Computed example of a mutant assay.
Amino acid sequence: MEKSFRFNCRTMVNFGFGAVSALPEYVAKLGGTKILLLCDPGIASTPILDTVTDILDSADIDYELFDKVTPEPPVADILKAVDILRESGCDMCIGLGGGSAMDVAKGVAMAAGNDGKYEEYAGIGNVPRKGLPCLVIPTTAGTGAEVSIICIATKGESKLGVVDPLIAADAALVDPELTMGLPRKMTAETGVDALVHNIESFLTVTENPMADAVTLEGIRRIWTYLRRAVANPGDREARYYMAYGSLLGGYAMNLTDGAASVHGLAFALGTLFHVPHGLAVAMMVPRTMAAVAKGNYAKFTAMGEAMGICCAGLTAPQAAERIVGEIEQMYRDIGIPLNLRGLNVGITENDLERLTDEAYSQKRVMGHSMYQLTRDEVLAIFKAAY
């Protein structure tokens, strides 16, 4: 069937080793005179921050540092940063780090350039106008937030997502060099997140030919290079293609309006137990994918073929079982836990109903899945993962 689709991509991308050196050029292009530089405490304690601030200092670009971004960032982080931006006279945001830092930068730029607060714009297409200029510099290969039109923050025990082309970063400097020192554990968790962005954008009710082309390339590259990147953090070729695959995942979500059921279940883990996003996504893949395969076995098998998994001679359910088994084997190879108890965050069997309710409330992402999970099926997945 012929499908209409939109490709919402506003972001200028400079990709490759050394891309961060172009920072002054892009600040000038975007008209920034004083920067609010946002990162988390972890990045603030590494040479990565020095690399960026040295570039700004050398170009005589004034900046204010906000290094208090937290994982699964609360709306309060965005409000606090907006106050600092206004008090210090900044007119541009730079997000340096993983998805949280980039989302906070996008959220601050949006909120500071509009009249309301972040939560007023939650949902799809609710942002009145373009906010302040925003540039992002990813230091992980995972979220695709550098080009996505999505920003996620938490309020209480709920995720508040803003989905709108107007919040996309104006520019992204995607420099694989900045991921070279990423620890193995973080490489594994963020790498699986990038893989799932491509997978879920392939297995979605909002599928389209362009998304299929992008996602199959992303799946192939990440599946080929993730083990290498984890095994040898200094593997430049692996780091290059992991950053590339993550970028494709961000583009894919712009083509399909975001992720699907794996993320719905992962959001519950992140919201209720503060499990880091990449790890939460990874935990929910095998059992959720086993259920989602029923929605379109042909596409699920095509995904396996992109991974190089031979399914010749197998029935559709057998092929799906083999693909899920290969994903679990990859987890063993890169050190991802295979059950919720392995997270050591205090989840008990009594929490599974609460997790199910939170996941099932994520109507937007849950509705994207080619196979629509019932509440009982969501609960069964959590029980199987426990």
Results as ranks from 00 to 15, higher is better:
E2Q: 06
S21N: 15
P24I: 03
E25Q: 13
Y26I: 05
G32L: 05
L36M: 04
A44I: 02
D57T: 14
S58G: 14
D60P: 06
F66L: 08
V69T: 02
A76P: 09
L85P: 09
C90L: 01
D91F: 08
M92P: 11
S100E: 10
D103I: 07
M110E: 04
A111S: 13
I124S: 11
I124G: 02
P133Y: 02
C134P: 07
P138S: 07
A141L: 05
S148A: 01
T154S: 13
L160R: 07
A168R: 01
L173W: 09
D175I: 15
G191N: 07
D193I: 09
H197W: 03
E200W: 05
S201F: 05
T206Q: 14
M210E: 13
T215W: 06
L216R: 15
G218I: 05
R221F: 10
W223P: 12
T224C: 08
R228T: 12
V230F: 00
N232D: 15
N232A: 11
P233I: 10
Y240P: 08
A243S: 14
L247Q: 12
A252G: 03
N254L: 04
V281M: 01
V281D: 07
M289I: 07
A290E: 15
V292L: 10
M303V: 00
C311N: 11
T315F: 00
E328K: 14
Y331R: 07
P337I: 05
L343E: 08
I347G: 05
E349Q: 08
E353K: 03
D357P: 08
V365F: 10
H368S: 10
M370L: 15
L373C: 00
V378T: 05
